[in-house]
Design a binder for these strands. Sequence first.
DNA 1: CGGCCAGTTGATTATTCTCAACGCGCGTGG
DNA 2: CCACGCGCGTTGAGAATAATCAACTGGCCG
Lengths: 285, 285
Amino acid sequence: MANSCLSMHQVDAYPDNLFAVLPPVTACMDATTPGSRIVSLITDSPIRHRSRKPGDYLFRAGDEFRFLLVLNAGFAKTCYVSEDGREQTTGFHLPGDILGLDAVAAGAYGCDGIAVDACEVLAIPYDAVIAHGQSNPALVGELYRAFSSEIRNERDLMLSLRSLPAEGRVAAFLLEMSLRFAARGFSATELQLRLTRQEIGSMLGLKLETVSRAFSRFAKLGLINVYLREIVLLDRDGLLGIIAKSTGRDRVRRKAPVTSLTAGIHDVFPISPAMRNSDRHIASQ
Amino acid sequence: MANSCLSMHQVDAYPDNLFAVLPPVTACMDATTPGSRIVSLITDSPIRHRSRKPGDYLFRAGDEFRFLLVLNAGFAKTCYVSEDGREQTTGFHLPGDILGLDAVAAGAYGCDGIAVDACEVLAIPYDAVIAHGQSNPALVGELYRAFSSEIRNERDLMLSLRSLPAEGRVAAFLLEMSLRFAARGFSATELQLRLTRQEIGSMLGLKLETVSRAFSRFAKLGLINVYLREIVLLDRDGLLGIIAKSTGRDRVRRKAPVTSLTAGIHDVFPISPAMRNSDRHIASQ
DNA sequence: CGGCCAGTTGATTATTCTCAACGCGCGTGG
DNA sequence: CCACGCGCGTTGAGAATAATCAACTGGCCG
């Protein structure tokens, strides 16, 4: 394997159990990962650790959904295969990320989960999630937040996909990765991307050559240094400038009154602690 | 308003309460909407109906998150505004859709929700969702499914955004809208899109002229008829052909062993039936 | 009427993809 | 050992695609 020595080096850098070194659940909720919070709430239930080596499948598209997987150490990617044969890398996952949230509704995984590096996952039986939730409301709330976070992250990525040209997407990708690495205690400036140009391009809707050219140009501009899959961020503002350069030519937004439904409801119908048992109240127009 | 007469016509076509005519919760889970199932589980809690007219804000980016909104009748869109000023239409929502799922984690709405047409929403206090979940496991399961569905839908859209050229995206958009309309009892072939070319383009990462040209070309090919914002699908296979034309030139997928982590776990640790939540329904494979 | 907005269409430009060549590291097998 | 293949990455030239700029239509409304 071309990256075997690289991955060995990385694995040595991981703590044995990432969650052991993360802050406790009650502290600084935003600073830790959804995965760690949920795992800490289900420690007594059947959780399996599994060490995996690069290239291993964590799950496969079409597999029956039984487990939420929390990435405990290492890195993984998800590859989506649509029914008409298109395939692409859809996500890159860091320790603390939860995989499989998209599989709950369908009852089957919709994409392949593949270890990029040696990695270790905690497989939480969905049955246990359900069972624990009945006695532990905090877990349910955490799950809601984890789902919600995932949706928000996807939206943010889509926003970049839709509104930015190639170089802007690459710049946004680098800054995003920097944030995600930093949030997990990795370096925010020396990014071990671990993904091929092809995989990065697939995530961004670009061809591998376009990704390579963007990296080369950023390096020429002094914004980054490129050493194969390690990218060193030198000038964050410069990268932000790349993004800003392509934005701003959008239309001005339609002006509108400053009211909103929820604001109105809050004013007009303050929430009463008592549950009103009645038919749904229909406001006449 | 350019579409006021159109919207009046549409409003007349809505049943007074869409959920009243939808199948009951237990039947045909896939055929009904997440919103209807959840609403039917919280009928006794403070739910507010509000009629809205076109252009009204249902919620605004930055508003404190208090309510999940179930669109009961009419159509709405969500507009995302990123911190650096980019703005775009991110979603188009039909009766039965749930809005605000992405706001749970942040505690605030991240995008504007805007009525496209006269529409009516059920605002479900998140407090009530939490409270009811503690006594009603079925509701929690439904919520999980709703979240999960949303993630899956976003993924599917992103797949199209990343892998398809302009015409492919438009074709995929039309077929997707057809499915969504059909699932809610609207015509699957005569689509009242209700969105401007600009809004459609924004969702697909295209400029309005590109959308217009795609429509024109599809019409010239006899695949659709275009009457402003009403699109009549004439040849679904033809539209699929447009999509297929651009796919298939992807790389062959990396070959890999047929094992996966979850399959392995399944073999080693069979799930005990006692853990199974009776509410949970997994689609057979 | 005249302005405005949504939509269509054409001409031109810019961006990105495609195709191709090449370098490099690393394994494999002669 | 070294040649070779192969995967990954870079770079260039040309082709294809989509964006941009611009003109024009039609409906609506003040």
